[in-house]
Simulated assay, not measured.
Amino acid sequence: MRNEERRRPKIVVMGGGTGLPVILRNLKDQDVDITAVVTVADDGGSSGIIRNYVNVVPPGDIRNVIVALSGLPKLELDLFQYRFDSKDQFFAGHAIGNLIIAALSEMRSGIFGAVQELSAIMKVDGHIYPAANEPLELNAEFSDGTTLTGESEITAAHKLIKHVWVTPSNKDGEEPEAVQEVIDAIMTADQIVLGPGSLFTSILPNLMIGNVGDALRRTPAEVIYICNIMTQKGETEKFTDADHVRVLNDHLQQNVINTVLVNTQKVPDEYIDYQRWNEMSRQVNHDFKGLREQGCRVVSADFLELRDNGAFHNGELVVNELMNLLGQVDSRNAEGR
């Protein structure tokens, strides 16, 4: 009798910014079924300009995730990532990939179908799902009671954020929803990974979509948060690792985070170039008692990569730990059969 084909473990990675591709590039080498759920609430840089011109989902984060999971040769990827440096008023600063995503979004009447088609063209190994099929706006209430709309404006305010939520950028009074494929991926996952990335502007915009938050509260998958190494100016200054988790759980109105990955390797004094990496504030302090009080399993290890006078996650070390945690889930499931 022919052996039944082995089912590949399903991992959903959620976030945005520069942290998500770091994990995905290393995860691609593992024998897992990857789904990346990418924020659509960015309004800065080339993405923001294109969004204002043609009213499509900002493509920058999606472009970087496509490249991270693509099987195309380097030349094609370099072309897709190429950013114009001409003095032309429109093209200067735009990445070719952003323009392609914007064009396909218009052709296919939405970002979701466009990304699926482009993923096939780019030979993506895995699934890339925009968190919503329409552009969203990030809103924030600060501790002083004031509010702002727009990811870049919220970060630039440099005020303590109390709460964030998302609204459709081109509709009034309607709650944003993720497409069913996103919800199905969350509900059938073996492991869900949040981060690394900006807490309020890269991770929470995904979770604040109503049916996404509901799915995270109901999923049987292990939900893992990769805690940031450095606090972020204008977002998480003076935060401990427990504070990061507390914000996630409070926004989801439930202790959703099962496991948190915490870097314990010290960033050398005077290493960080704070002018170049002006969003970095200081290294995140540890509060293991506060994490345990929220029901978290804590995995603390050296996840640090020092490069270009900045502190980042070492994608290989993080993915190795994710695979170790996934193996523990597989072992428990096998024992239960």
Rank of each mutant, 00 (worst) to 15 (best):
M1N: 07
R7Q: 12
R7W: 04
G19T: 01
N26W: 04
L27I: 11
D29C: 03
D29S: 11
V32Q: 11
T35G: 05
A36I: 04
A36W: 00
V38E: 10
A41S: 13
D42T: 13
I49C: 05
I49K: 15
V54N: 05
V54L: 10
P58K: 07
P59V: 09
G60F: 00
R63Y: 01
G71Q: 07
P73Q: 13
K74F: 00
E76P: 02
D78H: 12
D78S: 14
F80V: 07
Q81R: 14
R83V: 02
F84D: 11
F84S: 12
D85P: 03
S86C: 13
K87D: 12
F91N: 14
A95D: 07
N98I: 09
L99E: 15
L99W: 01
L99V: 08
I101V: 09
I101T: 09
A103D: 08
E106P: 01
S109Y: 15
I111D: 10
G113K: 05
G113S: 14
A120C: 13
K123I: 03
K123M: 15
I128Y: 15
Y129L: 13
N133Y: 03
E134I: 01
P135G: 09
E137P: 01
E137Y: 02
E141S: 06
S143F: 02
T146S: 10
T147R: 08
T149V: 14
I154M: 05
L160T: 13
I161S: 04
I161A: 04
W165M: 13
S169L: 02
K171I: 06
E174Y: 13
E174H: 12
V182I: 07
V182P: 03
A185P: 00
I186N: 03
T188L: 15
A189T: 11
Q191H: 07
V193W: 03
G195H: 04
T201A: 07
L204F: 13
M208D: 05
I209M: 05
N211P: 02
D214P: 00
L216W: 12
T219S: 02
P220N: 14
C227G: 15
I229H: 06
M230C: 08
T231A: 15
Q232W: 10
Q232F: 02
Q232P: 03
F239A: 01
D241Y: 00
H244Y: 00
V247S: 01
V247M: 15
L248I: 05
N249W: 00
L252E: 12
N255W: 08
V256T: 04
I257N: 09
L261N: 14
V262N: 03
Q265N: 08
V267D: 12
P268I: 15
W277S: 10
E279R: 03
N285T: 04
D287Q: 04
F288P: 00
G295R: 11
G295A: 06
R297D: 04
D302L: 08
D302S: 11
F303E: 10
E305G: 02
E305F: 00
F312Y: 06
F312D: 02
G315A: 02
G315W: 02
V319M: 06
M323E: 07
V329K: 14
R337W: 13
